[in-house]
Write a protein that binds this DNA or RNA. Structure first.
Lengths: 172, 172
DNA sequence: CCTGAAATAATGATTCT
DNA sequence: AGAATCATTATTTCAGG
């Protein structure tokens, strides 16, 4: 098995001049980044087979990607619905008055497990908060708390046709 | 090493009546779900040490969580900026006319690596699209394409104080 | 569902190219 | 940077409670 995502031998010289971006990622890095983003528990030996490198070389490559900060960690993806969260929603917040993200009230709110993402943004609103809740009653409860921070606009997720696609390094 | 997240022996009987939710996750499942969401490359043996179970038992538990669909996969987390994406943004879209997500034009657009998430929502808008782009020129390019689908409202991400927190199963 | 033991496979350290 | 070797650990499978 394997050989699904292979690269021609020619592009794998130890000094890959062609096919390497100025950002310091060569073709093998690209492959590894894609592989670990989609199948994060692959063995080093299996990764080695796929990119045609020894396990030791893959270890070294991944270590570099990790210490350089390109790879920030690994995690299981879960299905919120299977964990009992029937509703996901985006809540946009326009703070009134002097609230900011450092406020104790805000920090405490962000601790709640239902708050899965918080983004500070510029544009029509100030924050975009993503939540996972069990049901509409639960949503109402969270919404009341978030409303303390500002005027909210809520969008309930029906489906997510694209979820966390592997991100390739930019070509340039 | 280890013993960071341990559970008292009493809660680990083979038929855990107390402390188990009706959703079918007991205390050990909870711990495993948290551990694999935050440190997805932990060895089965290490997971076993943390939850005080044999590696074989952990294998079996994870297999069940995977086949039941609670765990949908594993992946590396990456830092978009380190991959050359200087800007992340949310683009809300209000389609004009008869566009929908099945439209070939839309499907093609969603293939682009810059489009990292697409959510079909109800509320003020129809879709919420998350993008990662190299710079403002790149953003303009994507925005032009997305604008073909409907009226857009863009929010550029400054910082993300909460990103992909581990989601615990709901208690009930 | 779990443990324990035994066979197989993966990993990490070292050395060499 | 990568390969090859070898000592150490991890994983898988299966018998049994």
């Amino acid at each position: 098995m394997g050989d699904l995502v292979a690269v021609p031998k020619e592009t794998r010289s130890s000094r890959p001049a062609a096919n390497e971006s100025s950002s310091g990622f060569d073709a093998v890095d690209r492959q590894l980044l894609e592989l670990v983003q989609t199948e994060g528990r692959l063995k080093l030996s299996e990764l080695g087979r796929r990119v045609r490198l020894s396990p030791a070389a893959v270890t070294e490559r991944l270590r570099r990607l990790e210490t350089s900060g390109a790879i920030t960690g690994y995690g299981a993806r879960v299905d919120p619905r299977r964990l009992g969260y029937g509703i996901e929603a985006f809540i946009r917040v326009n703070p009134h008055g002097g609230y900011n993200l450092k406020h104790p009230r805000t920090l405490e709110l962000m601790e709640r497990p239902e708050i899965t993402e918080v983004h500070h943004v510029v544009g029509e609103d100030c924050w975009i908060v993503k939540v996972a809740v069990a049901d509409t009653v639960h949503l109402e409860e969270i919404l009341e708390e978030v409303s303390a921070l500002g005027r909210t606009t809520t969008s309930i997720v029906l489906t997510s046709p694209v979820r966390q696609k592997p991100l390739p390094p930019v070509m340039r």
